[in-house]
Amino acid sequence: MALRKFRVWRGDGQGGEFKEYDIEVDPGMVVLDVIHRIQAKQANDLAVRWNCKAGKCGSCSMEINGKPRLSCMTRMNAYGPDETITVQPLKTFPVIKDLVTDVSFNYRQNKRIRPFKPGPKGADGNHRMFQEDVDRTQEFRKCIECFLCQDVCHVLRDRDGKDQDRFVGPRFMIRAASLEMHPLDTDDRIPEIRKEYGSGLCNITRCCTEVCPEHIGITDNGIIPLKERVVDRYFDPITMLGRTIFGIKKRKKTLAEGGE
C-alpha cells in the first residue's frame, strides 16, 4: 500500500475544478480502481462511466495526465511512485458531470451510416466468405467504441459547435469501411463517404490510430483506402470519361439527395 495523490476534475456543464484526493493504492491497481476507491471512501457522488473493467466495452475513457486512455487498462505502475495522477473528462465532448461526458454525437453519427445490405445466399442457405477476405473487416469490427479516436480527432476537436455533423469522425469512417470492405455487402456508400461523412476533412495526422486501444489501423487500413475510392470514383479522368460514354453504373446521389 502506498499513499498517492490524485487530482480529479469535479464539476458539470457549467464549470468545475480539480479536487485533490490522497488515497491508498495497492499493487496491481489500475487508475479506474483508484477512482472507485475514491468514490467509495471519499466522494460517493463522483461520476464515472465503466462496465467490463477489462478493456472490452470502451466505457471508461478519460484523459489521464493529459493522454486519452481507457482507465481500466492504465496501470498505476506506469507512473512514477511520487507522480500525481491528474484525471479529467474527454475534451471533445460536453461534460455532463465529473468524468462523464455527453457522447450522443457518436450515436447520431452511427445512425447516418447506411446499414449492411447483403447479397443472396448460396443454394444451401449459407453465405460463403473466406478468412483472407474477412480479415480486414474483422480488424475494423474489433472496435469497442471507446471514442478515444473521436476525442483526439482534430476535425472534431476544432469544430467549436459549428457544423457538428460535417465529419463523422474516425470511428465511423472505419464503420463505413467495415461495410464497404465486407465481402457480402452490395450497397455503395462512396457518395455519402465523400459528401456527408466528410472523408476529405481528414488530414491524415494519424492521432486516432495512435490512441486506439484495439490497435486498429484506422488511418492506413480504413480512412486512406476510402479516400482512394472517392478519388477513383469522382476524380479519376478515365473513370469520368467512361461514365460519360457508358452511362452511370454506380449510384451518385447520396441518401440525403434522394438516392436509393
Binding site: 447483403p118 449459407n126 453465405h127 466468405m129 478468412q131 474477412v134 474483422q138 469490427r141 461495410l179
Partner: peptide, 19 residues
C-alpha cells in the same frame, strides 16, 4: 446464428468459407 450473418456479423471462417 445465420440470421446474424444477414445482419452483418463476420464470424471466423472454415476453409470452405462457412462459419
Amino acid at each position: 446464428v445465420r440470421e446474424l450473418e444477414d445482419w452483418g456479423a463476420v464470424f471466423d471462417r472454415t476453409k470452405e468459407g462457412l462459419i
